[in-house]
Each structure stands twice: as structure tokens, then as C-alpha cells.
Design a protein around this nucleic acid. Structure first.
Length: 474
DNA sequence: AAAAAAC
């Protein structure tokens, strides 16, 4: 038999494990990247969200592991803790019943425990740049045995604050290591990083012109800023998604939005980077288990997370650029499944939608809600015209002032106002049922934020790509 | 217009 993963020269034990997990045929990126990675070449791999990139690097990485050598041989770097945990789970599923050990090295968790676990000599470590670098500095993690380094979501890992940590790690390693860079998006400035660290890289790109999954439908609704929460509520009622991720741009908006949505009876929890580590893990775990319907999150949840039950991604704030849009909406419509991306925008934000549809070559269709249904705006206009004619014919003199016309009442009845931002923003509330005495605010202090802001003066290659000319003229 | 990533 020489089909599927066996044809890619994946060892029988892993082919068998994959079969047990219900995976028999390699995806395009797996079929293209695995053979090259197995040759030991440095690989730059790009494919859409939800196309199986994790397995595309995990399998070659496992192939190089020498179980008789008790040292760290492979490092996987990721931008967020949640993604790190997910990748550890995937790897552990693959190495079940084998001698390969995997250890996660992420921030927020007890460093002592991670140090203890490193004494058990895992061959593979998966981590976020800060914590991995910290363990190297403490001389608890040795880099000399590392032969494979994967940087997942490489464009995000090489942003601002993490970049120095990653480059310090690279400098501490032997020249003779294989580098694998993966992402759905490769902003042009990333080429400098590739040129600096990779040796004769092979570029594997699957369908790069098609930036988002073809199984995704892109929609948007227009409303005023103060009506966004209510619009979201109505969208959720109408679509009733099995599970949805709702994105906001700022951490500070999460607590207030969660409270308001819970108040109107929605099943929702918040997830953001500054929340306590235990709360983050708990919210993520509960969402994976289907314990609530809406995960209200910052871009911490935008990348890599694989949650098959997510049918809708909703942008309560528009993402700051097209790449962010790609990753956010990529949380649904994965592996051939259908998904819906819904953006809720103000009239002033309309230009952003236009920009995304042009940049990404996709159609983002406007929808409105009318009489409890989602309709095309053109349909709504037709219905309103007909209603008006009918009303005028029947009761011509009953609504002389204009403000009390039936269509105005209809529109109001369906849209009770629930302002999203009134005065000062409320600090995010803690999710879950944690200690009641714990502070409700994020544990990140103001001084930290100040420092972060200052850090942005440093290597800001990513910022260069921002285009201020896209802003509306005043 | 931001978030995330270490103690």
C-alpha cells in the first residue's frame, strides 16, 4: 500500500495513529511540505487557515526525533499560550504509546513545574518566546541538541516584543538546525527575517491568491456604534450559531460587552491576554467543551485555534488590517466545513470593508435585519416601499407629522437600544466562577502597559505596512 | 486605531 501518508514516507506507526484519529488523506499543504521538510530543508510554508499546517510540520518533526537521546531535539514556537496548549495536545495524540515526550513552556504557568518537567528530558518543547527564552537564561533549557525549529504563525511571532527573544534563541543554537516557518499570511517585511535566518529555503505556497477559505461566506451589517451590542444580540438570535467567536479590538471593551450580553440572556464568556492564566485556560477549555455559545475575545484568539464547532466569526470591531481579518475569520470554515464571517460596522467604518474585499479579492455582502429576518438591503427597501404605499392608501391622514409612521415604529420595535459605550469603559470582569475576592480587573498593571507602549519605538517592521492613506477624508 | 509575549 502506498497511498495517503504512507506515500509521503511517513513511518507506519504514525500512519496508523493518523488512521485512528480519522485522518487518512494528506491535505495539499501536507502533501507539498512534508516531503521537502523530510529532506531536511528549511521550509517557508503558506496555506489558508484551517488547511492542516500543524500536521504538515508535526510529522516531519517527529521523524527526526531520536527516542534514545534524552535531550530536547525540537522546538515549536507559537504566539499565544492557547495555541501552544493546542499544539501540545495534537503532538501528544500522535506520540501516544511511544517514547517521545512533549513539554509545553508557556508564560503564566508555574516555571518551577516546567523546570521539573524538563528534568524528565522531553524531546520536543512547545512554547511562547518569552518563557522559552527565560528558561534558556536560567540554563534549564539546553539548545545544543535542537535540530528542528518550527515557528508557527511566524509573522506574528516575529512582531515587536517577541522578536528579540526569538532571535536570541536562534543565536544560541547550532548552525546545523532545520527551520520551518508556517503561516497563512506572509507580510513582505518578513522576507528580511527569512533571509537572515534560513539557508536556501524552499517556498511552499498553496493557492496563495485565494487568501481566505472558499467555504466562508462574508457578510456585514451597518449600525451606529451605540447599537453594536444590540445588533450583535439580534444577529445571534437570528443565526443561532452552534458556537461563535466575537472579536473586539481592545481588551478594555470585553468586560462591559460580556456583562451586557449576559444581561440580555446570551451565553458568553470573555478571553483576553491580560486575564489570569487560570481564567484563560478555563474559558478556553469550557468553550472547547461547548459549555457556552459565544467567546468574546481579543486577537489572542485570532490565530491557529482549531475549534470545529465554531460556525460563525463575528467582528464587533473591524480588524485593523486584512491579515487580521484573514486570521479571525479563519477560526471557522476549516477543513472544508462551511462558515460565516459577520462584521458589524458603523457607516464611518464602511471603507474598511471595501478595502478588505478589494485586498482579499472576496465579496463581503451587506445584510440588514427587517421584520425578524436577515435580508439583502435591496429587499428591505422594496418591502419598505410596498408597506408605505399600502399604509398611505389605507390611512392617508393618520400620520401627518412623519415621526410616528408605521415603518419607523417597526424599525424601533425590533431594535431596543442598548448603548455599548457610555462614559468611562468598564474593566473586564473575571470569567467563570473563580475566587470572589480576586480583582475583577486584568492583572496587568498600568506600568506594564506604559512600558509596552514605549517598546513600540523599537523594531517595528510590521508597522511599516500600515497604510494611513486608507482613512476617510475629512 | 491593538494585542500579545517573562519574571
Amino acid at each position: 500500500m502506498n497511498t495517503g501518508f504512507a506515500a509521503l514516507h511517513i513511518a507506519p506507526q504514525y500512519v496508523k495513529r493518523l488512521q485512528e484519529l480519522g485522518i487518512t488523506e494528506p491535505s495539499d499543504i501536507q502533501a507539498d511540505a512534508i516531503p521537502i521538510a523530510l529532506e531536511g530543508k528549511d521550509v517557508v510554508a503558506q496555506s489558508q487557515t484551517g488547511t492542516g499546517k500543524t500536521l504538515a510540520y508535526s510529522l516531519p518533526l517527529l521523524h527526526k526525533i531520536d527516542t534514545s537521546a534524552r535531550e530536547v531535539q525540537a522546538l515549536v514556537l507559537v504566539p499565544t499560550r492557547e495555541l501552544g496548549m493546542q499544539i501540545v495536545q495534537t503532538l501528544e495524540q500522535l506520540v501516544k504509546d511511544s517514547d517521545v515526550r512533549v513539554q509545553q513552556l508557556i508564560g503564566g504557568a508555574s516555571i518551577e513545574r516546567q523546570i521539573d518537567r524538563l528534568k524528565l528530558k522531553p524531546q520536543i518543547v512547545v512554547g511562547t518566546p518569552g518563557r522559552v527564552q527565560e528558561l534558556v537564561k536560567l540554563r534549564k533549557l539546553k539548545l545544543h541538541g535542537i535540530r528542528t525549529v518550527v515557528v508557527d504563525e511566524v509573522d506574528q511571532v516575529f512582531e515587536l516584543g517577541s522578536m528579540q527573544d526569538v532571535e536570541a534563541l536562534f543565536k544560541g543554537m547550532l548552525r546545523d538546525r532545520q527551520l520551518l516557518f508556517f503561516s497563512a499570511t506572509f507580510p513582505p517585511p518578513l522576507q528580511d527575517v527569512i533571509d537572515r535566518w534560513m539557508r536556501e529555503p524552499v517556498y511552499v505556497r498553496v493557492n496563495p491568491a485565494q487568501r481566505t477559505s472558499e467555504t466562508l461566506e462574508h457578510l456585514y451589517f451597518v449600525c451606529q456604534e451605540r447599537d453594536k451590542i444590540d445588533t450583535l444580540r439580534r444577529i445571534v438570535r437570528l443565526y443561532n450559531p452552534k458556537a461563535a467567536i466575537v472579536f473586539v479590538n481592545e481588551t478594555d471593551d470585553i468586560g462591559e460587552a460580556v456583562a451586557k450580553l449576559q444581561h440580555v440572556g446570551l451565553s458568553v464568556e470573555g478571553l483576553y491576554g491580560d486575564s489570569f492564566k487560570q481564567e484563560r485556560a478555563k474559558a478556553m477549555q469550557a468553550f472547547r467543551a461547548g459549555k457556552f455559545q459565544l467567546l468574546l475575545a481579543t486577537d489572542v484568539a485570532a490565530r491557529g485555534l482549531d475549534l470545529p464547532q465554531v460556525t460563525h466569526v463575528i467582528n464587533l470591531d473591524p480588524p485593523i488590517d486584512a491579515d487580521h481579518y484573514v486570521h479571525r475569520v479563519g477560526r471557522t470554515g476549516r477543513m472544508g466545513r462551511k462558515g460565516t464571517a459577520v462584521s458589524i460596522i458603523t457607516p464611518r467604518e464602511q471603507f474598511i470593508i471595501d478595502k478588505f474585499s478589494k485586498t482579499l479579492g472576496i465579496e463581503i455582502k451587506q445584510r440588514t435585519m427587517f421584520h425578524g429576518k436577515v435580508v439583502d438591503p435591496e429587499q428591505e427597501r422594496a418591502i419598505r416601499r410596498d408597506t408605505k404605499k399600502l399604509v398611505e392608501r389605507r390611512v392617508p391622514d393618520e400620520f401627518p407629522s412623519g415621526s410616528e409612521k408605521p415603518e419607523a415604529r417597526i424599525a424601533q420595535a425590533g431594535a431596543p437600544k442598548l448603548p455599548r459605550t457610555e462614559g468611562k469603559s468598564v474593566k473586564p470582569a473575571q470569567t467563570g466562577t473563580g475566587r470572589p475576592s480576586a480583582p475583577a480587573a486584568p492583572d496587568k498593571r498600568k506600568a506594564d502597559r506604559e512600558r509596552d507602549r514605549k517598546n513600540k519605538g523599537a523594531p517595528r517592521w510590521l508597522k511599516e505596512k500600515r497604510d494611513p492613506s486608507g482613512k476617510p477624508k475629512k
